[in-house]
Amino acid sequence: MRTERLRFPRIKTVLLIGAVTVAAAITVSASPALASTQFKLDSKSLIPALARAQVPSDVPSREVLASSVGAEFRLSSARSIAVSDTASYFVAEGAAPGDLCLVVELKSAQMSASVCTDRGSFYRRGLALDLRGEEAHSEQVATAYLIPPDVQPTPGHEPTRNASVTASSAQIIVIPTGGAGPDPAQFARVKSQTPFHLTVLADIDD
Score class of each variant (00 low, 15 high):
Ala30Gly: 04
Leu75Ile: 15
Leu102Asp: 00
Ile81Phe: 00
His197Arg: 14
Asp42Val: 10
Thr117Glu: 04
Ile47Ser: 00
Thr86Trp: 07
Leu201Asp: 03
Val64Gly: 00
Val165Thr: 06
Arg124Cys: 00
Ser169Thr: 15
Gln152Phe: 14
Leu131His: 01
Gln171Asp: 01
Cys116Lys: 07
Leu102Tyr: 06
Pro155Val: 10
Thr143Ser: 14
Asp99Trp: 10
Thr3Ala: 06
Ser108Asn: 14
Leu146Thr: 01
Val55Leu: 07
Ser80Asn: 10
Thr199Leu: 02
Ile147Tyr: 03
Thr194Gly: 02
Ile81Asp: 00
Phe73Gly: 02
Leu146Pro: 00
Pro176Ser: 04
Ala78Cys: 11
Cys101His: 08
Thr143Asp: 04
Ala163Gly: 00
Val55Gln: 14
Thr117Ala: 09
Ala35Gly: 01
Lys191Ala: 15
Leu146Lys: 02
Gln54Leu: 08
Ser192His: 08
Ser164Gln: 05
Ala30Leu: 05
Gln110Cys: 13
Leu34Ser: 10
Ser76Leu: 15
Val83Asn: 03
Arg52Gln: 03
Ile17Ser: 13
Val64Asn: 09
Phe39Ser: 08
Met1Leu: 10
Gly120Ile: 03
Ala87Asp: 03
Thr86Ser: 12
Pro56Phe: 05
Ile47His: 00
Ser84Gly: 15
Cys101Gln: 11
Tyr123Leu: 14
Ala170Gly: 12
Gln193Ala: 12
Pro176Tyr: 07
Pro159Leu: 01
Glu135Trp: 09
Gly156Met: 05
Ser45Val: 07
Pro148Tyr: 11
Arg74Ile: 13
Ala25Pro: 05
Lys107Cys: 00
Tyr89Gly: 02
Leu102His: 04
Tyr89Thr: 03
Ile17His: 09
Thr154Gly: 02
Thr86Asp: 11
Leu75Met: 09
Arg2Ala: 14
Gln38His: 12
Gly120Gln: 07
Glu4Gln: 12
Val165Gly: 04
Ser61Val: 02
Val28Thr: 15
Arg119Pro: 05
Asp85Ser: 15
Ala113Ile: 08
Ile11Pro: 05
Ser84Lys: 01
Thr194Arg: 08
Gly178Gln: 12
Leu34Asp: 05
Pro155Gln: 01
Arg74Lys: 15
Val165Gln: 06
Ala51Asn: 12
Glu134Ile: 15
Gly70Gln: 05
Arg189Pro: 06
Ile173Leu: 07
Val22Glu: 12
Glu93Asp: 04
Ser45Pro: 03
Val151Trp: 03
Ser29Lys: 08
Ala128Leu: 04
Arg161Thr: 13
Leu131Tyr: 02
Glu4Pro: 01
Pro149Arg: 11
Pro182Leu: 02
Gly181Thr: 14
Arg119Met: 06
Ile172Lys: 04
Ser31Tyr: 08
Asn162His: 12
Gln140Trp: 10
Leu6Gly: 05
Gly179Trp: 05
Gln186Pro: 01
Ala19Gly: 15
Val59Phe: 08
Met111Lys: 14
Arg161Val: 13
Ala167Tyr: 00
Ile47Ala: 06
Ala109Asn: 11
Asp206Glu: 13
Ala87Asn: 07
Ser192Asn: 10
Ala188Glu: 12
Val20Gln: 11
Ala53Val: 10
Ala25Leu: 13
Val103Phe: 05
Gly156Tyr: 10
Asp99Thr: 06
His137Val: 10
